[in-house]
Design a protein around this nucleic acid. Structure first.
Lengths: 194, 194
DNA sequence: GTCTATAAATAGATAGAC
DNA sequence: GTCTATCTATTTATAGAC
């Protein structure tokens, strides 16, 4: 049921999805939504939290592994691609929430978002400490890593709309190619310059 | 008046902004909106088109200049940062429209979006032809270039929400630093590997 | 061209039976 | 826990005076 609601919110946003519609795709009555959640906002928050919890746990485990930092960075990126594969609504919902400035994010959700960033930052900083990575602005490095992943997911969705397949920017890109490209760019960004 | 509507749509999305509100910030009566536009959707489309027209003209001029490709690429990125500076609603509105899969984009707008991508692709391809750039997937290179720029604009907006200033991922990053970082990453991505 | 007033549809939310 | 029916507020859109 969360999946259905998440996909709908991801498609059309908080204001674009009615509680009626969520009830319909969840196969329950609208009154049931209000029996389980105080209001639409709380339902939305629970959907976003649920989604971010998984992402947080996963990338934190990657960051805490004892493998070399460059390898952990590659795994971090691969994990994002896999999550986007398994749950297509994840990147666009996250992207939309960011685009809105996150006015509906509660403190718990912010902590989860923070932990994803912290996992990334930890990998980069440990790579710098061992001399594998050069010095960079951590926030911008983070933007450079997940920005293209999120935007590409949006691009894929836009490509699925009717009458788009002929446009060159909407060509299909296999996720293996995507992951390889993103790993390469991230490592290029952090590599010590000769 | 377009600016006011654009800023509102950028903040809260198509469904999040009422025609009443647009009329109010534009300082006119709601009936005036419907006198000038057939409906809310057409107004929205005109806002997006107007915004993209400027961007398209600007980056096309950069792509058509006769300077070396790496320099044109740097200018392309600097132009994006400047546009985001001058019109803060531009990146988030574009990002949101992408995140939604662009279901409201009309053919004219798609042509404009296409022309921005084409300008980028032209710079990269000409750089490849002269041996300055290595071979890459053009679409992914585009995602890697504008994705972080758009996401960072969203990050900046999110940072302006109350109670966010203490979170490490919401630290302020000067736009000069942003531009320099993005130019560096783009050139690293395209540089011929040793 | 610009306004007031209002129609018509939709959305969030709740009451109350079972 | 689950439903039907309904209330209330909001929203898109228009009619019609000036």
């Amino acid at each position: 049921m969360f999946q259905a609601a998440a996909a709908a919110f991801s498609d059309r946003g908080f204001d674009g999805v009615g509680v009626d519609e969520i009830a319909a795709i969840a196969g329950v009555n609208k009154a049931m939504i209000y029996y389980h959640f105080t209001d639409k906002l709380e339902l939305y928050r629970e959907v976003v939290r649920d989604m971010l919890r998984d992402a947080s746990v996963r990338v934190t485990a990657i960051a805490e592994s004892d493998r070399p930092a460059p390898l952990r960075l590659e795994t971090f990126i691969a994990a994002f691609v896999e999550m986007a594969d398994a749950r297509p609504w994840f990147p666009t919902l996250m992207l939309r929430e960011m685009a809105e400035g996150g006015p509906r994010l509660d403190p718990d959700t912010l902590v989860l978002m923070r932990s994803v960033f912290v996992a990334f930052a930890r990998i980069v900083q440990e790579g710098q400490a061992t001399g594998a990575f050069r010095s960079v602005n951590l926030v911008l490095a983070y933007m450079s890593t997940i920005g293209p992943l999120l935007l590409n997911a949006a691009r894929e969705r836009a490509a699925r709309q009717p009458g788009r397949s002929d446009l060159p920017m909407f060509v299909e890109v296999p996720h293996a190619v995507l992951a390889a490209h993103m790993q390469q760019v991230a490592l290029d960004m952090l590599r010590i310059k000769p």
